[in-house]
Amino acid sequence: MFLKNSEINRFKKTLLLTEKNIKYNFLKYFILSLIIILITPVIFGTQNLDSRASAIPLEFFIALTGIILITPLFFPENDAGTDELITSKYFENSFVYTIRIIYAVLTLFLLILFFVFYLKLNNCTVNFYHIYGTFSSALFLGSLGLITSALIKNNAVPYMIPLIYFMLNFSGGSKLGKFYIFGMSSGIFEGKIFLLVSGFVLIISAVLIKKYSEK
């Protein structure tokens, strides 16, 4: 980058790690998420929607980006050779995982923020709860994928679990109570805190599981 032949300190080292991870392990998922965001207005029509109708593209489609961005965060080390190499290093794996989770979650939030803002520009009735609610659903879905990935080293199965949960919500939503991800679309603008907190708990658990299964 802008570094010359000089000493690089810890902050710069962390920055370099972040940059490399984004460049090699994150970019394709980000682009896929962008495509989802761009397709959404095409499928749903996003003008003049009321509060409840605005929640629909958010909860049913935008929330899927949570799965795309968060589920594959452990995938780069799914290959046994790479895993052994990285594990033998001085820096603990969980350090890199934490970096990835931070930028992935931030990206997710920003994408949702951007889309809600887009809705607002299109004269839809949206407010901060739409951002918060969609983010909670998206985070929860992604966290399901991440924790599956911590338990099973596979490049496809971790996507199955959040998608199955998504399907389950499609058909039997009321039975899921506070963990129903399409609440706002049904007119319920409260209770998303359970999804949000659970999402974070699952993500942290996933990192801990990874950390202790590597020992």
Partner: peptide, 14 residues
């Protein structure tokens, strides 16, 4: 990348 992970010194890194 691996240099950083290995705990390589920041001095004369490049």
């Amino acid at each position: 990348y691996l240099g950083i992970l290995s705990g390589m010194s920041g001095k004369n890194f490049r």
